[in-house]
Design a protein around this nucleic acid. Structure first.
Lengths: 237, 237
DNA sequence: TGTACATCAGTGAACGCGCGTTCACTGATGTAC
DNA sequence: TGTACATCAGTGAACGCGCGTTCACTGATGTAC
């Protein structure tokens, strides 16, 4: 009965193809070099046809950003869903490894959402922010649990709906913890996928894993290191 | 006697003005949007005149990259020069704080050297790599000292000449330590200057300081945490 | 000190290019009766 | 089942733009004698 009509299906397929082509192009030449005309050309469409699907270039970029966040969120959800009853440290580690795996597998997508902003493009926060929140939901849960500030929400259907609480709504201690973790994840991942570790002989994967294990150590509630480090030092530095 | 002749001086001044104008433009519109014509326009030059100073656009970009690395290197050198006899942890902290300060003060420069690569631009490694090495020299020293692998070189004139040893020449343990530190520095700094912490109420400076203090803790030679964390865990994660 | 010549910073016009976007249109797909 | 009409995906030509780069040139600055 409520079968999607043919036209609708075609439309959705073309829309998906536009986005996939754009993604491939970004992967090859960088997010900032995305060209509507080139996308159309590769698809065998006239450039004007794209405007049946996206109001303008920025709308396509926004759609790609939202997709990338959603894809990352799904990867992170899946990672923790695999270890529903694991200890905090293990849940964090699974999360962190999945985060890097997604970034390494989708460097253009990662650059799009977390790299240098695209010149001339201004993300519409109302659309982009919830997607970003959603991607950080599992990390927020872990930070909350680590600080004992609240129990994680029902985890039976982890990817069901966006968390009411985003990074910005976390209590300060949990937020600082989440940001510290995210910072470490992002730092090593960004250095790796943008090629700054290339010349070094290291295996970025094991370096990353080691650092994430070290961080997982800190997830015990009120770990002494964190307490000791908070106040500014007496020295002049 | 050996006074730089007028023509030479003018030439150098114009060259510097081109770079300064380009830097300002990058700061406003992003590194990828740098335009030779726009630079010339802002300087009241014809666009062709730029080609008296740079072979092409890429040459200008390369010069800007080298300058940015040199500027960062100078900032880091100055930071440790202020604390010649400080303990390792304090030297690292001074370094880390100077790193963030430079990045926050020169976001476009930071994006240029450590952000998403510019589409279509390929850095000439032979020119760019030594500059990058030079910028990392002080961090390399600290990592070496932390691991007791070698004594830091003569620090009487810290910015005098490039270190013979770069990140890639470090012994594995020291290199891993240096990369871990750099990763943390880069992660928080990149999130901050590219606006991903904007919506949060936090003070990025104190978050950063706190994390760097925690990392400085690990600089004791053979700190137990590092030893414990190196081997992969027995668990399935 | 004056003259002839060389250097070279800067000009202005032109090249070919690819871009985002608009517009009036065609023709196939769907709907109402 | 057939016909008339509405929808709408896609076309092709055109718009104005800014870009990087080249080229033959002008005219001021410097040098040799």
């Amino acid at each position: 009965m409520a079968v999607t009509p043919r036209r609708e299906r075609n439309r959705l397929a073309t829309l998906a193809e536009i986005k996939a082509t754009a993604r491939a192009q970004m992967a090859e030449r960088g997010a900032a070099a995305l060209s509507l005309r080139e996308v159309a050309r590769q698809m065998g469409l006239s450039s004007a046809a794209i405007y049946r699907y996206f109001a303008d270039r920025d709308a396509l970029v926004t759609a790609l950003i939202v997709d990338a966040y959603a894809d990352l969120a799904a990867a992170l959800d899946a990672a923790v869903a695999d270890h529903p009853d694991a200890a905090l440290a293990q849940r964090f580690l699974a999360l962190a490894l999945a985060y890097r795996a997604w970034a390494v597998g989708h460097p253009a997508g990662y650059a799009l959402i977390l790299g240098t902003p695209i010149p001339g493009y201004q993300a519409p926060d109302a659309i982009t922010r919830p997607a970003a929140h959603r991607a950080m939901a599992r990390l927020v849960e872990v930070a909350l649990a680590a600080r004992g500030e609240a129990s994680p929400p029902d985890r039976a259907e982890p990817s069901a709906e966006p968390l009411a609480v985003g990074l910005s709504d976390l209590p300060p201690a949990a937020r600082a913890l989440a940001l510290a973790g995210w910072g470490q994840m992002h730092g090593l991942v960004a250095l790796e996928i943008f090629g700054h570790l290339d010349a070094l002989g290291d295996d970025p994967a094991s370096l990353y894993r080691r650092e994430m294990l070290a961080f997982a150590d800190r997830l015990g509630v009120g770990h002494p290191r964190d307490r000791a480090a908070v106040p500014a030092p007496a020295g002049a530095v």
